[in-house]
């Protein structure tokens, strides 16, 4: 039993460093995803068919694609078209662009929940499109979209394990290093599962807190 725990103590710095990398990459990707997702959802709501069509295509492609393929295209395929990015950047961009499609769908469902009359009234009162989104749509739909948004962040955290395959030193990558150096299997993966679970649980609790705050 002590031997079991010794390995954990010995490798705690490596595993925690991995957890921190996973956390900041996911945080940046979430911000990127939410910003692009909101832009996509707004564009889709405009009265321009080609624009709407382009947004739909983007969303359908992202939703039909394994994230691993997206990362490989960016990381290994990028250089052959002159796009050289380091693994972490690919990780943030890949997760961000991928998440954006899902966030866009969440925002769209939120926009749909706002009664049309309100928008018409706001327009009559002379509010611009951005003002309508900022002051009328977003505040009302926050209650509705917070749970699926939190869900999506949790999904992104779990998807981020895939970044280990393109050599990002995040939690899963460091776990495999732990395995390779010690030939132990149970301790590293058990620790990884626990740390992921901790991170996910923390996000879920944060989500619950936000949920309480956005309720009127």
């Amino acid at each position: 039993m002590t031997q079991f725990l010794d390995l954990w103590v010995q490798y705690a710095p490596l595993m925690l460093a991995g957890l921190v990398t996973t956390a900041w990459i996911c945080a940046l990707a979430t911000v990127l995803g939410i910003v692009i997702g909101l832009i996509l959802a707004c564009l889709e709501g405009l009265d321009a068919k080609p624009l709407r069509w382009a947004v739909r295509t983007y969303i359908e492609i992202m939703r039909g694609l394994p994230i691993l393929i997206l990362l490989f295209v960016l990381y290994y395929g990028g250089p052959s078209i002159g796009l050289r990015l380091d693994a972490e950047t690919v990780g943030v961009l890949g997760l961000g662009f991928y998440g954006a499609a899902y966030f866009a769908e969440i925002f769209r469902s939120g926009f749909q929940s706002i009664p049309k009359g309100q928008i018409e009234a706001a327009r009559m009162a002379g509010l611009t499109g951005t003002q309508i989104v900022r002051h009328i749509k977003l505040p009302q739909m926050l209650v509705l979209i917070t749970p699926p948004m939190v869900n999506e962040v949790i999904i992104l955290i779990k998807e981020s394990a895939v970044l280990s395959i393109i050599t990002v030193a995040e939690l899963t990558k460091n776990t495999t290093q732990f395995v390779n150096e010690t030939y132990a299997v149970i301790q590293p993966y058990l620790a990884a599962a626990l740390l992921y679970w901790l991170l996910v649980e923390a996000v879920a609790q944060l989500g619950k807190f936000v949920e309480r705050r956005v309720r009127f």
């Binding site: 955290i157 779990k158 895939v162 993966y189 990884a192 599962a193 992921y196 679970w197």
Partner: peptide
């Protein structure tokens, strides 16, 4: 909760090596 809360890559590696 266990299977929904951990990355599928980690699950796969655990099954494969365990």
């Amino acid at each position: 909760s266990l299977w929904r809360g951990t990355p599928i890559l980690v699950q796969l590696l655990i099954i494969y090596y365990l």
